[in-house]
Design a protein around this nucleic acid. Structure first.
Lengths: 272, 272
DNA sequence: CGTTGTGAATTAGTTCACAGCA
DNA sequence: TGCTGTGAACTAATTCACAACG
């Protein structure tokens, strides 16, 4: 609904890529253009590598091979090296990578050198939990504003920030230069809140509400959807059960027995 | 790093597919085998279609075309039809799909006809919020147990379920036939908790802790990682900023001005 | 007709495998 | 010698485009 949308945009697909700009400026794979070239899937993994590397650094590790880092991140080393190659060549052949250098470079690519002010909308169970993280995960994401509609919450500080009314989203967000909006409202309110955030100049939205948001296509939306996650898991349980009944003749306990065969699931790629 | 892993398994890739079984039983693309064939990405979207369809049904909609459903789900219609085709042919050419039929079929494929008992481990901010949902999203996921290490929490009911000690995970989970474990502990405790859940027979894990879990490869793990999500958004903010400075000559306000061009972002596919 | 269902074409992402370098 | 960086090969996912059909 609210379907003024237009999925099929104008471009006939399979045409552009680096196009859409003037044909002057021959080729500048600068840091800017380089960034565009990083596959979406790789970006998600870079964030994981960053965390692993930070942990390593804390433990005093200064150098690490692709094999080691890959194991710790739950991916294979070829993928890891390919991912790192998107951001440049910072390894030393025969040796590995300098942990600190890698941390710096990944932070640079992910734009973590900037501060990204965050607004959380919907201070219920979840919003409360989010606000209490006080300065989002990994720092660099200060919570600049909280919003709700509940009159009882107005002015009440959560995690040190007073709750304001959702009607004030446009003014407050614009004023505090919020770039990331987090929606933790009931589903019915999500689209309205989203529209306000967008009109306030917010560029990216993290949506916890179980609805599909309609947004201008220059707004980046990521969603975290509990129900979907649970149902995907349910699917796998079901598939497994089916397989079991399928060939329920052969070894059964035999398979279950060697529960020691540990292999880091590729949890990085959002899917397997 | 607990790295007994072995990413490169034995199979030389590009060999199997439907293999690995006896060559008798010629070909049975039964519901079971059919399930195996559904692309992971499609499964995630089916869950979204299901929600949209349920909402539709509530509103009295009985029939819907691929174009309409696709719009509401934020995907294009070709993808939607392809996704639905994985589960069977339930549409009527020239007409569309019967909403109720589709709901039933998707629920069947996702295994939502079964009950999946859930255990939540780590009753902090987030765990508390999760437990309070009381019976996870969309029903069918009853919370059967809560665990923590905090002595003050032992026996305290949260969302109607008393908190038990993590040491009891193996016995309690096995006893109550928990199939899905939710980890909402601090990162340091996550792997240990995960190991216990696995030894208790839990098949799938939803991990909110910012660590890469090492699990036997017959365990399905999905992760929800706030920090990663925020950093992906950060990346996009940064890229955008770079692009802006890039060709800061031409129209600037012009682009920002027509903020009305709404197009449902493809929020379904976990990525774009 | 109008819309589904699906092979074929395309694009994105992963893995292989090895040349090249410290 | 050992490990990175990457072209080439492969696999997965998406999109096209149209025949089939109620």
């Amino acid at each position: 609904m609210t379907a003024q949308r237009n999925e099929g945009r104008t471009a006939p697909a399979g045409s552009s890529e680096t196009v859409a700009q003037d044909s002057l400026a021959p080729e500048v794979p600068s840091a800017r253009e380089r960034a565009r070239a990083i596959p979406e899937a790789a970006v998600a993994r870079l964030a994981v590598y960053l965390r692993v590397l930070s942990t390593m650094a804390e433990q005093g590790v200064t150098t690490i091979s692709s094999e080691e880092l890959a194991a710790a991140a739950g991916v294979n080393s070829a993928k890891l090296r390919k991912d790192l190659s998107y951001i440049g060549s910072y390894g030393t052949r025969g040796v590995g990578y300098d942990v600190e250098v890698l941390v710096d470079q990944i932070e640079r690519i992910l734009g973590l050198t900037r501060k990204h002010s965050v607004a959380v909308v919907g201070i219920g169970n979840l919003g409360h939990a989010l606000a209490n993280y006080g300065g989002f995960p990994g720092r660099g994401f200060p919570v600049a504003a909280l919003f709700d509609v509940d009159p009882d919450l107005m002015g009440v500080p959560v995690g040190g920030i007073p709750v304001e009314h959702v009607d004030d989203i446009p003014t407050v967000c614009a004023e505090r230069e919020v770039t990331i909006g987090v929606i933790a409202t009931p589903p019915a309110a999500a689209q309205l809140v989203c529209d306000r955030l967008v009109s306030a100049g917010v560029q990216c939205i993290l949506n916890f509400a179980p609805v599909v948001l309609q947004v201008p296509d220059d707004i980046e939306v990521r969603k975290v959807d509990l129900a979907v996650e649970m149902q995907i898991l349910s699917f796998h349980v079901a598939r497994r059960a089916d397989e079991a009944t399928e060939h329920e003749a052969s070894a059964d306990a035999a398979t279950r027995a060697n529960g020691a065969r540990v292999a880091a699931a590729d949890q990085v790629g959002v899917r397997r």
